[in-house]
C-alpha cells in the first residue's frame, strides 16, 4: 500500500509567539518548532496501516529547510521516505493544498493522511482541498479507521456523538485527536533516520487568494473582580454571573 502523509512544521504549543515587525507574520526568533500534533496522529496511523498491510509511508511537507527537522522526526518514527517541497513565499490554504496535491498526483498513493488542522493558523482546510483537487473522497475528524481490501470504515467525531461512514480507496483521511496515541521515535529509529535521504523539490510560488492583512495578539484579559469575602456576597455573585457574564 502506498501511504502518503502530509506533515506541517509548526511552533511548539508552549512557545509564546510574537508578531513580526511587518505585523503580518510571526517572529520566528526563539520559537521552538514541532511536528504538528494532528499530523503526528496521521503519521502514526500511516505506520499502523503499513504494519497491517505492508507497503511504504512517504511524508511530505511544504516549507523550507527548517521543515526537515519535522520530516526527520517522522522518519525516526518509522516512515520510509520524506520529501520537502521548498517554497518560502506566503501561501494561503489553497496554495498549500495545491503544492501537496500536485505531489500526490505524481506519487499516486492508495491513501492520503493528514491532521485535521495545523495548530499555527488553524485554517483546517488543506485535507479537504487536496481531496477536491484530486477528485477523491475525503473523511474528516476521523477517530477510528479500518481499511480492509480497499474498503474504508471510519468513525467520525460529530457534535454530541459519532458517525460511522464507508468509502473506498483511494481517499483522503483527516485525523482527529483520539485516532491513536503516536509512538515516540526510538533512539534506534533516530539513528536509522539519519541514513535516510530527504528529497528536496523546489515548487514555484503561487499568488494567494486570501491575503493576511494583519496579525494581532489577543487583547489582555480584564482584571478579576472581588465581590465580597463571605457568604453575604453570594446573591450579588449570582446576579453578576447571570446578568453580566451570562453563564448561568
Amino acid at each position: 500500500m502506498k501511504i502518503l502523509v502530509f506533515v506541517n512544521h509548526v511552533p511548539d504549543t508552549e512557545t509564546k509567539v510574537k508578531v513580526s515587525a511587518d505585523g503580518k507574520t510571526i517572529d520566528p526568533a526563539g520559537v521552538n518548532y514541532m511536528l504538528n500534533p494532528y499530523d503526528e496522529i496521521a503519521v502514526e496511523e500511516g505506520l499502523k496501516l503499513r504494519e497491517k498491510s505492508s507497503g511504504e509511508v512517504v511524508v511530505v511537507s511544504l516549507g523550507t529547510d527548517a521543515n526537515k527537522e519535522t520530516l526527520r522526526k517522522a522518519l525516526a518514527m518509522g516512515c520510509d521516505k520524506a520529501v520537502v517541497l521548498k517554497d518560502s513565499s506566503p501561501r494561503d490554504s489553497f496554495g498549500v493544498a495545491r503544492a501537496l496535491a500536485d505531489y500526490a498526483k505524481e506519487y499516486s498513493p492508495d491513501i492520503i493522511l493528514c491532521g485535521k488542522q495545523s495548530i499555527d493558523y488553524d485554517d483546517a482546510q488543506v485535507g479537504g482541498l487536496v481531496a477536491e483537487m484530486l477528485g477523491l473522497p475525503s473523511i474528516s475528524v476521523v477517530v477510528n479507521l479500518d481499511v480492509t481490501d480497499g474498503a474504508i470504515v471510519a468513525e467520525r467525531e460529530i457534535e454530541g456523538g459519532h458517525e460511522i461512514v464507508h468509502s473506498r480507496l483511494p481517499a483522503v483521511i483527516i485525523a482527529q485527536k483520539g485516532l491513536n496515541q503516536p509512538r515516540y521515535p526510538s533512539l534506534k529509529g533516530i539513528m536509522d533516520a539519519k541514513r535516510k535521504q530527504i528529497e528536496e523539490r523546489v515548487v514555484s510560488a503561487i499568488k494567494p487568494r486570501v491575503e493576511v492583512l494583519a496579525m494581532k495578539k489577543p487583547s489582555a484579559k480584564p482584571p478579576g473582580k472581588i465581590v465580597g469575602t463571605d457568604a453575604s456576597a453570594i446573591p450579588e455573585l449570582v446576579r453578576l454571573l447571570h446578568e453580566e457574564a451570562k453563564i448561568i
Partner: peptide, 13 residues
C-alpha cells in the same frame, strides 16, 4: 539534528 531529536524525544518521554 539527530542529537536534538534524541534529546527532545527523551524530554517528551
Amino acid at each position: 539534528e539527530d542529537e536534538i531529536l534524541v534529546r527532545n524525544t527523551v524530554r517528551e518521554f
